[in-house]
Amino acid sequence: LQAFIKTLTGKTFTVEMEPSDTIENLKAKIQDKEGIPPDQQRLIFAGKQLEDGRTLSDYNIQKESTLHLVL
């Protein structure tokens, strides 16, 4: 599935991932794409901060969901 990552500066980019991917995997993909170390990334979806060990499906993240990236 493709999801949108929106930063506080208003920049939006897309990442490809599977519902079974962990938040940790997602942070690694963001690092590959944007060069931001995972330990500096905080991802917010539906008002909740996402925990590394959980999966996208745990948070009911669907295709074309928008996640907010806070540094």
Rank of each mutant, 00 (worst) to 15 (best):
Q49S: 08
T7L: 14
R54D: 06
L56G: 02
Q40H: 12
E24K: 11
E34H: 10
F45S: 03
D21E: 09
K48Y: 09
Q31F: 15
T9A: 11
Q49K: 09
L50M: 10
N60M: 08
I5N: 02
Q62G: 14
T7V: 07
H68V: 12
I36N: 03
R54L: 11
E51R: 05
L1G: 06
Q2K: 14
K29P: 02
L8C: 14
D58S: 14
A28K: 15
K33P: 00
I36S: 05
D58V: 03
Q41I: 12
Q40Y: 10
A28S: 11
N25L: 13
T55R: 11
L69R: 00
I30E: 01
H68T: 13
G53H: 14
H68I: 15
S65L: 09
N60F: 07
L56E: 01
E16Y: 13
E16I: 12
I23Q: 01
A3V: 15
E18H: 14
F45Y: 13
L43V: 05
E34D: 04
G35V: 01
T12M: 10
Q41C: 05
S20E: 10
L43K: 00
A3N: 03
I5P: 01
Q62L: 12
R42F: 12
A3M: 15
L26H: 00
T7P: 06
L26C: 01
F13S: 00
K11Q: 08
F4N: 10
L67M: 08
G10C: 05
M17L: 13
G47F: 04
Y59E: 02
E16S: 10
I30N: 00
A28W: 12
E16H: 10
E64S: 12
T7E: 04
I61V: 09
F13V: 04
L69T: 00
T22D: 02
L56I: 12
I44S: 11
E34V: 14
T14D: 04
I23K: 00
L26Q: 01
D32E: 15
N60D: 09
D58F: 15
H68P: 02
N25S: 11
G47N: 06
K33V: 13
S57P: 03
Q40A: 07
I30V: 04
L50N: 01
E16M: 13
E64R: 07
T14L: 12
D21L: 04
H68C: 11
R42T: 15
F13L: 06
Q49L: 14
F4I: 14
Q49H: 11
D39H: 12
L50H: 01
Q2S: 10
E18V: 11
F4T: 14
I5M: 02
K33D: 03
T9V: 07
G35H: 05
T55M: 10
L56K: 00
Q40P: 01
L1V: 13
L67Y: 03
I36Q: 02
G47E: 04
K33G: 04
L56R: 00
G47I: 02
K6L: 12
Q2N: 10
R42K: 12
D58M: 05
K33Q: 13
F45W: 10
D32C: 07
A3T: 12
A3D: 02
F13W: 05
T12E: 08
K33I: 15
D21R: 02
L71S: 08
L56S: 01
Q62H: 12
L69A: 01
E64I: 07
L50D: 01
Q49G: 05
T14F: 11
Q31I: 02
D32T: 11
K11N: 08
I30P: 01
N60I: 08
K11M: 08
S65D: 14
T7A: 05
G47W: 04
K48L: 13
Y59T: 02
F4E: 07
L1Y: 11
P38I: 15
P38Y: 13
Y59L: 06
S65M: 12
L43S: 00
P38H: 12
Q2W: 13
A46R: 13
Q62M: 12
L43F: 05
D32R: 12
T55F: 08
G47P: 01
N25C: 09
L1M: 11
G10V: 03
Q62T: 15
E34G: 06
I23E: 00
E51V: 06
S65P: 08
R42S: 11
Y59W: 02
G35L: 03
K48S: 09
A28F: 12
Q49M: 13
N60S: 08
L67V: 12
